[in-house]
Amino acid sequence: MSYINKSVSINGTEKDFIKAFANELTSADNRITCETDIDAEFANEDSSHIITIIFDVSNCYKIKLIRAVAINRATSQYNIQTVINNVDKSSAGLLFLGATKFVTDIATRTFNFMLISNDNTVVMLFSDHNQSLPNAYKYNLMSYHEQNFNIVAYSNSINTIASKSEFIRTDEKHKGEIYKTTNRLLYSRDENVEIIESKPLVQNNIAVHDMKSVYDCSNVTAGSILIIDSNKYFAIDSNTLIKIKE
């Protein structure tokens, strides 16, 4: 399945919840793997230890889920952060409870996440326990994967969707190069939607690469699903459609 809007909620300890979240996230797309032994991470006897769970996405970048405070202190929050080319990027806080709890407390904890993907593209949105996706989110990511061409963009602002942010290349040959996307259609066609069969990546104002299964379109409502010619598309922003793989 390449469209998942998931609320991960479990009544148990914090470790139970994080293991459930990790299982749901890695099950959502086989390109996402968990690098951390979660049992060992929660068994750390150092009272100052900050629990950190690391996910790898297609050997392109990593996602860190970091407990807001040390293991011996109560919290209601984890921070989520992207690591691109071994550099930690800005983070955002994800609340899982309305009140602080210790790791061993039995309570119902919840995160929400959304994943839209196809053969080349992975888009993820993460939100608090009390937010409804895709209307509200705290952190979002978009990556594109092709042989010898891997890029990722991220945003920790509701005002900036990753698809409109700068993309950072992560493959060895051109690591660190910066790309942007551009919309070739900037007008409204009312209820009619026209699709340009690729979305160009721009470097120094020159289109250098077309992303497959990521489409330019006339203005659409972000967060909506469109069915066009029997194909499903998710509008990640007002001018970008991600083809949903059946």
Rank of each mutant, 00 (worst) to 15 (best):
S188E: 08
D56T: 14
A207W: 01
I71D: 07
P134H: 08
I206F: 13
E41Y: 04
D88P: 04
I225R: 04
A107G: 08
L125Y: 10
A153P: 00
C60W: 01
N219M: 14
I161K: 03
N23P: 05
A107V: 06
I4A: 13
D119P: 10
N5W: 07
S143T: 10
E41F: 03
R73S: 15
S76A: 15
Y215R: 06
N205I: 01
A43T: 13
M142Y: 03
I228L: 12
S90Y: 13
A99K: 13
I38V: 09
I63W: 02
K245P: 10
V220G: 04
Y187S: 15
K89A: 09
G223K: 05
S27T: 10
F102C: 03
A107M: 04
V193L: 11
G93I: 04
K180T: 02
L133T: 09
N219K: 15
F126G: 00
F167K: 04
T108I: 11
Y215L: 11
I168V: 14
D37I: 03
Y144H: 02
M114T: 05
N204S: 10
T182V: 07
V83W: 02
K101I: 07
N72A: 15
I38R: 04
L115W: 00
I106D: 13
I225H: 04
R189D: 10
N135W: 10
I10E: 06
I161A: 05
I195M: 13
H209I: 07
N85A: 07
I51Q: 05
K245E: 15
F234E: 04
A235V: 03
H209E: 09
Y78S: 07
S165H: 03
I53E: 05
Y61A: 04
T26P: 04
I10R: 12
T181N: 02
Y139D: 06
I151A: 01
T100V: 12
T182K: 14
A43D: 15
F113A: 08
N148E: 11
E194P: 01
K199H: 00
